[in-house]
Write a protein that binds this DNA or RNA. Structure first.
Lengths: 232, 232
DNA sequence: TGTACATCAGTGAACGCGCGTTCACTGATGTAC
DNA sequence: TGTACATCAGTGAACGCGCGTTCACTGATGTAC
């Protein structure tokens, strides 16, 4: 039984993987809107119609890349946080934020694919939502855990406003956490991705010389709005 | 002299304006990467080569649209702030932030053009930088003015870190303002545009029901990090 | 274990369409004398 | 005020290229009996 030819299923899985990695490579050059099935096929030494054995349409390939990107980023953040002590909320937030930024810098075209301008004419199907929430959950959990550990709002401010904010779906996402903190959690999420987008898309050029230091500063600042003061 | 035929120069200016507005309309449908000179010409009832009388290349048209977008947004923010009392720093920040968000929602494709993923293969020329700084300056001035009025850091925190941040070009942008406040100014800028991007690109779907209220909350929160407490 | 049939990967040609850019041209508008 | 010439807007054809998707096909891999 020295049959080392791959089975049909294996070969298929391998081809799908190759199509996706080739697409990622090409996306880095031409961007998501410029991704073309024909070029992918050409790069793989296939005839263009062969791709249709694996992806019935260009949009299906894009969807697969989007789902992969969300999962990839989600996994990166999950792992980064797991390496931290559960008591050290600030450390966990720094780890999560840094892993997001690192992933984005390593995979700029995939970051742009999921957090940049929507690809015109493409509507992401429902099932992309779940992988998309993955990174978000990492951040939400850090805040929720910290709140449960010591339920004191950071620099407590007008907590009354929170009740009127009408955040939705947040009850399950950050259970037991007051609305103000939830809202500040959304701000933390926004600030991190806002930073990464600005850095990647070149808007800090000319105003931030040492982005690493500035990023640390930013994470420190937002941590204080949402986590109990660390005791060091 | 009832010569109401437009002069050549007038006609030229009019055609350029029409090309740009047609492009803006088409960009709303197909996005910036899908903008095509041929389609613009077709929409205007011109032969495709005619466009080249006005824009020597597709990228030049894109550049013109980018410059216009930056200026448009800049003007909107400038006007919004001018309507506020110079003493009311918080009010000015709210006005500026709201005008940015409003402009973005009115001109989503132009917003995506300047703050979304960079158009692949397109490198913006140097002279787009100046109009780009226009909105930024509006925000920077609000903070600088407020600081001069009453030079007290908001909730004063470890001001020492600031010195190591290596922000550049900020000496001219926010003259006389300490580094920590400058850094927080950059965060305010980031938060506003991060919010608008998230809202426009659909990332708040499912977590924010009343975006208007949430936006007000966000601006209130960031105002406190960078402006002296208002005395109302 | 062997044969018959079904499944599937990849081929090659084609359909119908789009694009940016160049070029020689016509005819109208503007300028200099 | 009139004429001669230069400038410029817009035409129409062409170059050379790309795209997504369909379809009938060959030949290899897998399955049922």
């Amino acid at each position: 039984m020295s049959d080392n030819r791959p089975s049909r299923a294996e070969a298929r899985a391998h081809q799908i993987a190759t199509i996706k990695s080739t697409s990622r490579r090409l996306m880095a050059e031409r961007g998501a809107p410029g991704l073309s099935l024909r070029e992918v096929a050409r790069e793989m030494g296939l005839v263009s119609s062969a791709i249709y054995r694996y992806f019935p349409t260009r949009d299906d390939l894009l969807t697969a890349l989007i789902v992969d990107a969300y999962n990839d980023l989600g996994v990166a953040a999950e792992r980064a946080v797991q390496r931290c002590s559960k008591r050290d909320a600030t450390g966990r937030l720094h780890a999560a934020a840094a892993s997001i930024r690192k992933w984005a810098k390593r995979n700029p075209s995939e970051y742009a694919l999921i957090y940049g301008s929507p690809v015109p004419g493409y509507e992401a199907p429902e099932f992309t939502i779940e992988p998309a929430t993955r990174v978000t959950m990492v951040l939400a959990n850090i805040i929720t855990d910290a709140w449960r550990e010591s339920p004191v709002e950071g620099p407590a401010r007008e907590a009354s406003l929170g009740a009127m904010l009408e955040l939705s779906g947040m009850e399950e996402v950050m259970p037991g956490v007051p609305d103000v903190v939830r809202a500040r959690g959304l701000m933390v999420w926004t600030q991190i991705f806002g930073f990464v987008s600005f850095e990647l898309f070149g808007h800090y050029r000319g105003s931030v010389r040492n982005a690493n230091k500035f990023f640390d500063f930013v994470v420190d600042e937002i941590a204080e709005t949402v986590l109990p003061r660390s005791r060091d």
